[in-house]
Amino acid sequence: MNDPVLALSGITKTYNKGLPNAVEVLRGADLTIAHGEVVALVAPSGAGKSTLLHIAGLLDTPDAGSVRICGREMVGLSDRKRTAARREDIGFIYQFHHLLPEFTALENIVLPQLAHGCNQREAVTRAADLLARVGVGGRADHRPGALSGGEQQRVAFCRALANEPALLLADEPTGNLDPGTADQVFGTLMELVRDTGMSALIATHNLELAARMDRVLHMDNGTLTEA
């Protein structure tokens, strides 16, 4: 438990490398997140925060640098091992919920647990418990199209936490909601994260929401600085 949940060191990333239209997005970014720590990532559009989240979440690879999750180096691992680490250790939340429209709210949370090897009875019980905790237990049998935007995002939170990841990565998780709903939904997310003791890196444009986290990091010119 002494190792940080996430440690990025010297991360660089350039798109269209070697071409006239090359874009240097990350220029030696460093980041450490301890167990149970919730960190805000604030950056203007196009500054590279999504790229950083994708690298931290093993969805993309850096040109150089180290990515360690729970003390284990991820750079250089095979695709199979990276996929396994992503499935076991990381939860994702996006601005848009990306729920499967043909399945109910409950089923959307059960499916990732089954893929993780959980038996169906335990998966259903955990899904129902999570939905109840975020205040949408009565909507468990509704498909996403029958839910409000706030309800859909609460279900997405539950799905991300279903396998009890060590690290939660969220990219503008309330950016698609009106201010009032965003505040309520973000409060729900923070309660879930605090109750489970997991670590989180949450990108947001909302400075009021960022101030409710343990630390605020700003991304500028491809590097990170603490507020």
Results as ranks from 00 to 15, higher is better:
122 E>R: 09
116 H>Y: 14
116 H>I: 02
106 L>C: 12
160 A>K: 08
75 V>N: 01
68 R>G: 08
80 R>G: 03
88 E>H: 15
129 D>F: 08
65 G>S: 13
148 S>C: 13
112 P>Q: 04
103 F>G: 05
114 L>W: 07
124 V>E: 10
149 G>R: 11
120 Q>W: 04
118 C>T: 11
158 C>D: 03
99 L>P: 00
147 L>S: 08
115 A>T: 08
157 F>L: 10
149 G>A: 11
80 R>D: 14
96 F>G: 03
66 S>A: 15
136 V>S: 12
76 G>V: 03
97 H>E: 04
105 A>Y: 11
100 L>I: 15
123 A>D: 01
116 H>E: 12
104 T>P: 12
123 A>T: 06
151 E>S: 11
122 E>P: 02
137 G>M: 11
113 Q>E: 09
153 Q>A: 13
68 R>E: 12
67 V>H: 06
107 E>A: 13
149 G>V: 05
101 P>Q: 14
118 C>R: 12
90 I>S: 06
106 L>G: 04
79 D>K: 13
137 G>A: 15
132 A>Y: 02
137 G>V: 08
135 G>H: 05
138 G>E: 14
154 R>A: 10
80 R>V: 11
148 S>R: 03
91 G>C: 06
113 Q>S: 10
94 Y>L: 03
162 A>K: 06
120 Q>T: 12
132 A>K: 14
75 V>T: 13
122 E>W: 00
111 L>W: 03
67 V>C: 09
67 V>D: 09
74 M>G: 08
85 A>Q: 14
85 A>S: 14
145 G>W: 00
88 E>V: 02
74 M>P: 09
88 E>F: 03
121 R>K: 13
131 L>A: 12
116 H>Q: 12
69 I>D: 02
150 G>P: 13
127 A>W: 00
77 L>E: 01
83 T>V: 08
156 A>H: 01
153 Q>N: 10
162 A>W: 00
132 A>I: 04
125 T>F: 02
